[in-house]
């Protein structure tokens, strides 16, 4: 199963990078979302995945062996929320940019270099 997931990660990264390289800013943002999904998944599975019990404990079950690792879950949760904030801001930036310039084409962005 892990191999399938690894391939999924590869596909998500490929899609993300491909979308980043497009000229449309909207596609660019979608690319960012794919990339962050791929990264979250990578973090999630690289720390070992167990299809079994979620990490809930009470006083009686202190044996960690058959529980899924809660720490990467917390990390990915943090990453997802941070990603949310950033994507929202990116969307706003994109919107403002379109409102100001009337273009969605990244190749028009050459004034600030040189």
């Amino acid at each position: 199963m892990e191999i399938v997931l690894a391939i999924l990660i590869g596909v998500l990264y490929t899609a993300g990078v491909y979308m980043l390289l497009r000229r449309s800013i909207l596609k660019f943002i979608i690319g960012i979302i794919f990339l962050s999904n791929a990264t979250n998944l990578l973090v999630f599975i690289s720390s070992g995945i167990i299809a079994g019990q979620p990490a809930f404990v009470d006083g009686t079950t202190p044996s960690p062996n058959n529980l899924s690792d809660p720490l990467p879950q917390a990390l990915v949760l943090t990453a997802i929320v941070i990603g949310f904030g950033i994507v929202v801001f990116t969307l706003a930036l994109k919107f403002k940019f379109f409102e100001t310039t009337g273009t969605d084409d990244l190749d028009q962005l050459q004034q600030t270099d040189n």
Binding site: I32, V43, T100
Partner: peptide, 24 residues
């Protein structure tokens, strides 16, 4: 806005690398 988009894009990619490296 132009500068901002470039700044944002490349730095986002950077933090994506960071997170992936951390995961590994």
């Amino acid at each position: 806005l132009e500068g901002g988009i470039k700044y944002l894009a490349l730095n986002l990619i950077g933090s994506m690398f960071f997170l992936a490296g951390l995961g590994l």
